[in-house]
């Protein structure tokens, strides 16, 4: 199975995950500071920053794109409850 490495910059932990994993599946278990509200792509609470490796993330879904636009998010921001890691190296941090 294709793997990806996700580094949570705020706590200095890298997790090797199967391709397709959503950040929400791992960020809390590993103890990273990304916080969640609705957990289903509506409230925008879990907005995080992709420090590097955006090219290794899934495209924004229509839902995610709409929420990020509404909260005036920057280009490096994604919702941790929606965004999937597709492969390679990705570095994320809260906010």
């Amino acid at each position: 199975m294709p793997k990806a490495n996700v580094t949570f910059e705020d706590i200095g932990v890298t997790v090797t995950v199967p391709a397709g994993t959503r950040l929400i599946e791992i960020s809390e278990k590993v103890g990273a500071g990304i916080t969640y509200g609705c957990r289903e792509g509506e409230c925008g609470t879990c907005m995080m920053k992709i420090v590097s490796g955006m090219e290794n993330m899934s495209e924004r879904s229509v839902l995610e794109d709409q929420v990020l636009k509404e909260i005036m998010a920057g280009r490096q921001n994604r919702l941790a409850c929606q965004a999937q890691v597709l492969g390679g190296e990705v570095v994320v941090r809260p906010g």
């Binding site: 490495n5 200095g12 932990v13 890298t14 997790v15 090797t16 995950v17 199967p18 994993t21 791992i26 278990k29 590993v30």
Partner: peptide, 10 residues
């Protein structure tokens, strides 16, 4: 120390 772990361990 920076840690590297697998999803299974996690």
């Amino acid at each position: 120390a920076r840690k590297v772990i697998s999803m299974e361990e996690l």
